[in-house]
């Protein structure tokens, strides 16, 4: 059964001759335990696709169904709750809070939400990401790659049913990038989450179960 479903979703910006169809009519389904890659050139609509799938913006047409709930008609307040409960975002821009230590970035989630990882799971997560020694540091004292790994930890910590990652490995060297993909793969399989990774890097698609290609707002499943 699909955990995430996009039916006839379209998204356009602007009107008249300035109108941009960022997303043409899109049908998409993702199952539990799937690791999915979305590749495509810059400007092809990958981020638009991801933010609509995650309930961060409303589509111009069509509907988005997360865990059997049609979120298209929900108020921002309710969508916000769904994002908190169901979705882990790993964003292009750092999504860390500058005045919280790495440890407290996770604690913040404990403040706003239940059912996060246990202590043991968290310790393993830190080790898997190689950030066990950084727990008392602030984001400003971390390198770009370290920050990205903390951001990943943060997204996984809340035990989301869907992980949406927008170029999560962009600021990492290849070894780290492979490690991160391995980690996402492991999490996806062991927790039966659904992970969608938007990336430029075609070397990473070998970790994925399905690969979608995006061109000019059209998404198409690639044969592997």
């Amino acid at each position: 059964m699909a955990i995430l479903e996009l039916n006839q979703v379209t998204k356009s910006f602007g009107t008249g001759h300035k109108k941009v169809d960022a997303l043409k009519e899109t049908h998409f389904q993702a199952e539990k335990g799937e690791l999915i890659a979305v590749i495509g050139p810059s400007g092809s609509g990958k981020s638009t696709f991801l933010t609509i799938a995650g309930g961060l913006q409303t589509p111009t047409g069509g509907e988005v169904i997360i865990n059997n709930q049609n979120i298209t008609e929900l108020s921002e307040k309710k969508r916000s709750k769904i994002r908190l409960q169901e979705i882990g975002f790993i964003l292009q821009a750092s999504n860390l809070v500058p005045f919280l230590t790495v440890r407290n970035q996770m604690k913040l989630l404990d403040q706003v939400k239940k059912d996060n990882m246990t202590k043991e799971e968290l310790t393993q997560l830190y080790e898997g990401l190689g950030i066990s020694d950084l727990l008392d540091k602030y984001p400003a004292d971390l390198s770009g790659g370290e920050r990205q790994r903390v951001a990943i930890a943060k997204a996984l910590y809340s035990n989301p049913s869907i992980i949406l990652a927008d170029e999560p490995t962009a600021s990492l060297d290849s070894d780290r990038a492979y490690e991160v993909m391995e980690l996402l793969q492991r999490e996806t399989k062991s927790k039966k989450t659904t992970t969608i990774v938007v990336t430029h890097d075609t070397r990473l698609i070998s970790y994925c179960d399905k690969v979608y290609k995006m061109t000019d707002g059209e998404i198409r499943l690639e044969e592997t």
Binding site: L56, K77, S80, K81, I82, R83, L84, Q85, I87, F89, L91, A93, N95, V97, L108, V112, K113
Partner: peptide
């Protein structure tokens, strides 16, 4: 960013 993550 926090709101994007669903913090109310």
């Amino acid at each position: 960013v926090m709101k994007a993550q669903g913090v109310s």
